[in-house]
Design a protein around this nucleic acid. Structure first.
Lengths: 113, 113
DNA sequence: ATATTAATTCAAGAATTATTGAAATGAAAG
DNA sequence: CTTTCATTTCAATAATTCTTGAATTAATAT
């Protein structure tokens, strides 16, 4: 993953309502939730929730599937995990293990925690 | 960390030049880099680099310190790690271990990778 | 004091993103 | 086939973020 793609993905997460959506879908697990329930859970209008869901879907964080009249959304854990890996490998791991000789005070809480 | 704070931090990372800055500072390690060298490394004008550095500093991802005429910047690994933790605990871990009984197909590449 | 180097701040305009409510789509039921 | 329900799409506006270059602050040396 390069900086351009990662920047787009971070942009998709740079909104509190979209983070609420992801948290709700993570709690819901593989069963997912339909758009209306997501909207009421995060306290947004249907069209606003739809807008946020479209942004998350374009970034690949969620996938959707029609179930009768409703549209079911669920989180793509692999996609979220890919971004976590980017942050860990290019930021934390890089600082700890790259460059030959990491200095004494270059601690890395990503690995420790 | 709540959604509002996390959204602000993700916003600070939602720009390719700012990600380049972080990558450069991670490579530089605890020695850090001064603003001018960062600007030329990422191919940005001094004022644009300064703008991006201010955004990263406000988010707490970088800290700065004057060294004679230059301003030295270095990455705060704890801060980056805190955001990684948010993604892992609230998104991946949540999906894998919360809610009592995670279903069979609820795999989590965040833990596997 | 003046000049030089390093970096930031500011203001103005450009570009992107967010928000709202109304209209449109798609599926199911009467 | 018309109605109803669920959700999206659209258009207009509002708000935020980005970009550029000129002016400003800060430290050092002459």
């Amino acid at each position: 993953m390069d900086e351009v793609e990662a920047a787009i993905l971070f942009g998709a997460l740079s909104n509190k309502d979209r983070l609420k959506v992801i948290r709700a879908l993570v709690e819901a697990g593989p069963a997912g939730m339909n758009a209306g329930d997501i909207a009421s859970k995060i306290g947004a209008s249907p069209s606003r929730a739809s807008f946020h869901l479209a942004a998350l879907a374009e970034a690949g964080f969620v996938v959707r599937q029609r179930q009768s009249r409703s549209l079911n959304y669920r989180v793509d854990f692999d996609r979220v995990g890919g971004l976590v890996s980017f942050l860990m490998e290019d930021c934390c791991m890089g600082g700890c293990s790259q460059g030959g000789k990491p200095a004494d005070n270059n601690r890395c809480s990503c690995k420790a925690t």
